[in-house]
Design a binder for these strands. Structure first.
Lengths: 222, 222
DNA sequence: ACCTGAACACCGTTCAAGT
DNA sequence: ACCTGAACACCGTTCAAGT
């Protein structure tokens, strides 16, 4: 399992470094991503990861500064696999493609949304679609400040929608009880039952596209 | 500190229940809210709460089913203190007032946003502004499905903006490094430095109002 | 340079016992 | 009915020691 046969022309003094002995940073990060996608970001622990890698928890610290450092790197790597720029020239298609890509990579890795909600890991995701969006918005004539505000509106919306979809925050939810607590009218109950994202008929794709079009329509109007 | 002098006409057999001895559910929830607002939702623990209440951790379990139950109740109570319906008749003012109220109660309790991100606690907040918003949207002619989608766009946006503001996710952020990681052009750096929410010149209030108006413009157009 | 083992200071929660 | 104390099965991380 530890043999490495590649590039046989190297001297044996280098073989100590090159031998793919157990751990290395990349392997740790990849195992983290797999584990987070499988069990969720909240269930992830260094001890469980170590056990899955067949190693002592402390062995991880040779390749990772802390749990937080590891999770940041995992989120970074996931986000880096997305392409936000598709060479579109139309500003609206440019932005749509950008945030569809962000949404898709988060859905492909179901642990991502939750991962980014853990202490300040989101920021790296924040820069990903920024350049192409600001470029597109300058075409519509938005000044830099408004463009940045519009950009954060789009990011907020997209990440929250993914979060709803992948975490299913409505699984623990009793509409009737919530409506009673908030003193809402009973007429809501029926509507909520059939239209709420909790129900199986809720179409997350179409809900996302609808919200995205609302924001883009708003930008177009201004 | 434990004496209760109200309603002196009661018999002494009831005094055992009425004596405000140490704990009760309301006191536990109130202490939780204060602690979460002071130290943050992530730092909150039952053991720390018990110690602050001068009691054994296990004493809490007489008034609370679990940590999650306690956090849900704390979030519920905070949200219940908000008034979403201000008796407006204009649909746009109706929605604006509703989400400004949601945002304000979350900012008044800085731990709220993070609290709601912890396992499925958000849902109760989700119902709060729902009724008034759906009512307003029906005036514009949106069908129930689109109205629900627009509503979740507004909720997503509002809660995420509060989250950015209260948690300050950009404090741990190095724009230059992030831009390098994401292969972004260097021309972004300068723009980011002065326009990003990290900078002190970022106006969260105006950014919120701008994003809100984008979404409402989008609704108005449709 | 990389890994182990024991230890520290924490968690949420269960259970048996006290009053 | 309410509280305590000991215990269980976990955490992230430090430190000293091995190779």
């Amino acid at each position: 399992m530890t043999r490495s046969r590649s590039e046989p022309g190297k001297t044996s003094t280098q073989s100590a470094e090159r031998r793919t002995r157990s751990l290395n940073r990349q392997r740790v990060i990849e195992a983290t991503i797999a584990m987070v996608d499988r069990d969720g970001a909240d269930a992830f622990s260094l001890r469980a990861l170590a056990s899955e890698l067949g190693v002592t928890p402390m062995a991880l610290y040779n390749h990772v500064a802390s749990k937080r450092d590891l999770l940041v790197s995992a989120a970074d790597r996931i986000l880096a696999s997305a392409k936000f720029d598709h060479g579109e020239t139309n500003w609206r298609l440019q932005i749509e493609g950008c945030f569809r890509a962000l949404r898709e990579v988060c859905i492909r890795h179901p642990g991502t949304a939750r991962l980014m909600e853990i202490e300040g890991i989101a920021p790296s995701a924040v820069f990903g679609p920024m350049e192409v969006t600001l470029d597109a918005l300058s075409k519509v004539g938005l000044n830099p400040t408004d463009a940045m505000r519009a950009y954060f509106t789009l990011v907020s919306f997209t990440l929250a929608q993914v979060s709803y979809q992948t975490r299913g925050p409505f699984s623990h939810l009793d509409p009737a009880e919530a409506i009673r607590k908030q003193n809402l009218s009973a007429s809501l109950v029926e509507l909520v039952r059939e239209a709420l994202p909790a129900s199986s008929s809720w179409d997350f794709d179409r809900a996302f596209e609808y919200g995205l079009s609302l924001i883009l329509d708003g930008i177009e109007k201004s």
